[in-house]
């Protein structure tokens, strides 16, 4: 792997960690994974760095979390988080980023109306497909209940999809060779 890829992988892992510095919104009525800015990092890793670099960046990030660095929003870290309700969502991050990177790699010049659904597919559908069954298993909830709970997260995630699309298109205009 070339040096540039190594630096990009490190950069997007760090970006996701830096987004964790924003305070997470944890609502007591629906205890479960907090709403954080970090999933924006997942989307940008895929949409800007590409499938391979983005996926590896997220793999690096969750490896750093696993070894105990408190990089998740709210200062969480360590193996324990994978055993918790948000564990599946974390493990889905590399897959999400890779899916987004793959889709956008096929249409790098996509307009807003095409790029936003691609980011939404990887950043919401793929992530929930892994995260929800995991959460249901950990919390011992029926799958339908877990799905209902996660509906509360969709509006926030849609805002992040829109932000990620605008940022990606801006960056790609500034760096056409990306």
């Amino acid at each position: 792997m070339d040096t540039k890829s190594i630096v990009y992988i490190a950069l997007f892992a760090a970006l996701t960690a830096a987004l964790g510095l924003m305070p997470p919104i944890s609502f007591a009525g629906l205890a479960l994974p907090p709403i954080t800015a970090q999933s924006l990092g997942v989307m940008l890793a895929g949409s800007i760095a590409g499938a391979r670099r983005g996926g590896l960046a997220m793999l690096l990030f969750i490896a750093l979390v696993a070894v105990g660095l408190p990089l998740l929003a709210g200062g969480r870290g360590g193996f324990g988080v994978f055993a918790g309700a948000s564990g599946g969502f974390l493990l889905a991050w590399p897959i999400s980023a890779a899916v987004i990177g793959y889709l956008i790699g096929r249409a790098p010049a996509a307009g807003f109306t095409l790029m936003a659904p691609m980011i939404a597919f990887g950043g919401i559908i793929v992530m929930y497909a892994v995260g929800i069954p995991w959460m249901a298993a950990v919390a011992g909830l029926p799958l339908t209940k877990a799905v209902t709970i996660m509906l509360a997260y969709v509006p926030g995630d849609l805002v992040k999809v829109i932000l990620a699309t605008i940022i990606t298109r801006g960056v790609r205009r500034a760096y056409p060779a990306l």
Binding site: M1, A10, A13, A14, L15, A17, A18, L64
Partner: peptide, 24 residues
Amino acid sequence: ANPAKIGLSISLALRFIPVLAQIT
């Protein structure tokens, strides 16, 4: 995969976090 390169990416990522906060 080259473990030394993985080591470099880990060190770089940890160094980038405060830099990103500063740029922001």
